[in-house]
Amino acid sequence: MNSPIEIDFILLVFLVLISYAAIRMKNLLSATILLSGYSLIMALTWVVLNSPDVAFTEAAVGAGVTTFLFIAALSKTMVMEEK
């Protein structure tokens, strides 16, 4: 199965944009949600690269469990990053 190059290009551009936005975000809760979206796009990339096994792991662990762990840690500290 060969996917067209445009799909790869769009996914990679989204990955770069989302990770840059997650780095620049001052609100850490928003950054966590952006990382969850990053994992979702990454899972799509793994599917395009013909490895659905890794995509499964990325979607379940990256978008599900890791997001929860970050939010649980955030609920015990501050949501806003210090200037």
Partner: peptide, 20 residues
Amino acid sequence: PGGGFQGGVILGTSMILYGI
């Protein structure tokens, strides 16, 4: 695709959803 680890994480995630 999938296996013990992925299925286990999905089962655990259902409990996380319940807890949240």
